[in-house]
Design a protein around this nucleic acid. Structure first.
Length: 304
DNA sequence: AAGACGAAAGTGGTTGA
DNA sequence: TCAACAACTTTCGTCTT
């Protein structure tokens, strides 16, 4: 029934679409965009027996290409003061011609600006859902992006990478941080570049972020590990104690968070292996072991 | 056989001269 | 700009459950 539908993603042009019949949606495998949420039959109304009938009975037209600004047609007004027939423009109208040229240019610039913003925002939405980031944070990220765009900070950098930075900042602001690695991965850029752009944007926009606390990672990691709330609570207690004893200075927050969850999961008989935790927290087992050793030596774990 | 342990060498980022 | 440095990773052999 669905053999005649448009098999092309309007966002990235990919033809690699997946149909999910259970959720009744079609999405693009490459960029993740959900194209059609309640699938309807877009095929021809009746069976067609020749090309003419097919063309008449098909409901859909040719796919529109959104990828090219102005559809590739330049619309500048020429600098020769001649009209369309090649006649000289009267002296008294030359000033008007100047105005027209100027306005036309400006409109085009603002149009591409808006177009870039639209691309950025759809990118933001797509990647946010991929990362499971709530609406309010997306809006904060959108604000950061707009600010960056307004100050001309996107120029010379990819839209994607600035969207990535905006998300990174907004998550940290909201105290549900994502690591540079996590963000970089879904945006298909390197952590190095993301970090560089982050430093640039935060400097230019004068955004000051508090250092991340290991406790901020606990709820997310715990959920992914499928451990109970008790484990979370204890992990956070362990972190507090470690902070008080100065054990975490200079240590990676994710590693500390992972280790606290490891210890709490053992103490509450919901044990997860070092490997399971290391995969979710994005640190190695070795790091967990090192923290674990330090914690055992310096914290009285019996009190928890 | 899986998990935990720890040594050794390598990597990327920060700091201080 | 460069060397020293701390934290972390990778790899791997060994021990424990």
């Amino acid at each position: 029934m669905n053999e005649n539908k448009q098999n092309i993603c309007p966002e990235c042009g990919s033809t690699n679409l997946v149909v999910d019949n259970e959720r009744a949606e079609i999405s693009c495998k490459r960029c993740g965009l959900v194209i059609e949420e309640s699938i309807i039959d877009q095929g021809a109304e009746y069976r067609a027996f020749d090309h003419d009938q097919y063309m008449k009975r098909t409901r859909v037209g040719a796919p529109t290409i959104y990828g090219i600004a102005d559809k590739g047609l330049p619309t500048d007004i020429a600098f020769k003061n001649k009209d369309a027939n090649g006649n000289k423009v009267p002296e008294r109208n030359i000033y008007q011609m100047h105005r027209l040229r100027k306005l036309n240019k400006r409109m085009r610039i603002s149009r591409t600006g808006e177009r870039n913003l639209a691309i950025a925002l759809s990118e933001l939405n797509r990647k946010s859902s991929l990362l499971g980031i709530p609406r309010s944070i997306r809006e904060d990220a959108a604000l950061i992006y707009r600010n960056a765009a307004k100050n001309g900070l996107v120029r010379g950098r990819s839209i994607e990478s600035i969207v990535a930075v905006s998300l990174y900042i907004s998550c940290r602001r909201a105290n549900i941080p994502r690591t540079l690695d996590e963000i970089a991965e879904v945006f298909n850029i390197t952590r190095k570049r993301l970090g560089k752009n982050y430093r640039f944007i935060s400097r230019e926009l004068k955004i000051k972020l508090n250092p991340t606390s290991p406790a901020d990672y606990v709820p997310r990691f715990a959920t992914l590990l499928g451990v109970s709330d008790k484990v979370q609570v204890m992990a956070i207690k362990i972190i507090d104690d470690a902070i008080n004893k100065g054990l975490i200075n200079g240590k990676e927050p994710t590693g500390v968070s992972a280790t606290s969850l490891y210890i709490a999961s053992i103490l509450l008989n919901e044990k997860r292996t070092q490997k399971q935790i290391s995969e979710i927290a994005g640190v190695t087992e070795v790091t967990i072991r090192n923290r674990y050793k330090e914690f055992c030596e310096n914290l009285d774990l019996r009190i928890f």
